Simulated scan of single mutants.
Amino acid sequence: MNSEIRVRDPAWLTNHIFGTLQFYYPRCIDYRNGGYFQCYLDDGTICNNQTKHLVGTSRFIYVFSVGAMLRGDSWCLQAAEHGLSYLQNYHLDINNGGYFWKLNDNQVSVSNKYAYGHAFALLAASKAYQAGIPCASHLIDYIYNILDQYFWEPDHGLYLNEMNSDWSIINPYRGQNPNMHLCEAMISAYEATGNHKYLERAYILAYNVTLNLAQQSEGAIWEHYDPNWVIDWNYIETNKEMQQFRPQGFIPGHSIEWSKLLLLLERYKSESWMIERAVELYNSALKLGLDTEYGGIYYSIDREGKVLESDKYYWVMAEAIGASALLGTRLKAFTYWRNYDALFNYAWNYFIDKKRGGWYEKVNRFNQKVGNKKSPVTKTDYHPIVNCYETIRALTNL
């Protein structure tokens, strides 16, 4: 694979996105019960036909909306509309407002409301509206208002994490992860509508996480906080299903993801600290997380800089590819494109299923694939698609 010719080519990246979408479509469409099937083995076999997760539903809406924007294919638009219908008919809490976290056979199985889930619902609605689905417009306003009413903590300029179904109980846990994805969703909402309130909210989130909160951890991005947004160094998530949303240690992939978001934000509201922090977060993440012996980026690092989890995850590689492309185009620096080529080659060799489409979820330190479940519930290859899409935008000034 000649990466310098191919993976920097917008046409190649577009084809790669559609190769990934076609791993899922049409098998992902649940025509009988609505929504999408959200769990797949390597060969595309559906491995769970009951669970419908708010994050998975929203991510599918997003990726099909991107497909519709890139090529205008009607099947992409119809697939996105199919998901929006399910979002409103089943995930929506018609009594109390907001969206349920998880359903099983169309019945609510986890009724709590999560800022993380609402971030992806907002992202999905924004991209669907951009793709040409008019009804998504009112969802953008609705979700923003729900977030503002129940999750927003104005004294801190951040969103709390979790409430129960009727909004009467607030979980004391606070996390940076939902605020990161809410920053992403707010940027997307601004791009879809041109309404500056979304851009201002994205700015506040980026400033407070990457500058204010990071002062507590010497400039790094820590995951866990108490109700006053003071670092909780000892928090360990015991609910296995929630560990992917509340990971232990420093997560190099999240520093890289923030680097990318700062570059996206800087397009519309440019301040010098954004580029400086983007470069710092990117470089520090690679310094700590890059496996110089076997390639790839470690998943998590402890406070002393030692590796906590040495597995390499698809989403970390995808975010590193996207951040490298945005830094390369913004700063016109060869080193970032060199990283981009190396990271994409690594993903090509170990993560990308060149025969059937899609990315494998993770490999161990020695680049051996872990398990035969390509796409567990919530994955949907959102991260590879969004980062290929943002790279296309950066290369073509879309």
Results as ranks from 00 to 15, higher is better:
4 E>M: 15
9 D>P: 08
10 P>R: 09
12 W>F: 12
14 T>Q: 15
15 N>A: 15
24 Y>T: 04
32 R>C: 10
32 R>L: 09
35 G>V: 01
40 Y>V: 04
43 D>E: 10
43 D>Y: 02
45 T>D: 08
50 Q>E: 11
51 T>A: 05
54 L>K: 14
55 V>L: 12
55 V>D: 13
57 T>E: 12
57 T>N: 12
61 I>G: 05
72 G>E: 07
74 S>A: 15
76 C>K: 05
88 Q>V: 07
89 N>P: 01
95 N>R: 03
96 N>Q: 05
100 F>D: 10
104 N>S: 11
106 N>D: 07
108 V>D: 01
108 V>I: 02
109 S>D: 00
110 V>G: 06
112 N>R: 14
112 N>H: 15
114 Y>L: 12
114 Y>Q: 14
119 A>G: 03
133 I>D: 03
135 C>L: 09
140 I>K: 12
145 N>R: 14
149 Q>N: 15
156 H>K: 11
157 G>P: 05
158 L>S: 01
159 Y>G: 06
160 L>V: 14
165 S>L: 06
166 D>P: 03
168 S>H: 10
173 Y>F: 05
179 N>M: 02
184 E>T: 05
191 E>P: 00
195 N>Q: 08
197 K>L: 11
204 I>E: 08
218 E>V: 06
229 W>R: 02
230 V>T: 14
241 E>N: 15
258 W>Q: 05
260 K>F: 02
264 L>V: 03
264 L>F: 02
268 Y>K: 04
282 Y>C: 02
282 Y>S: 01
285 A>H: 00
285 A>E: 03
288 L>E: 09
312 K>G: 14
318 A>L: 11
323 A>I: 10
329 T>M: 14
333 A>G: 12
350 Y>G: 07
352 I>S: 12
353 D>A: 10
362 K>G: 00
364 N>R: 06
365 R>H: 07
370 V>E: 06
376 P>R: 01
380 T>S: 14
380 T>N: 13
385 I>P: 07
385 I>F: 14
393 R>V: 09
396 T>W: 12
397 N>F: 03
398 L>N: 08
398 L>F: 12
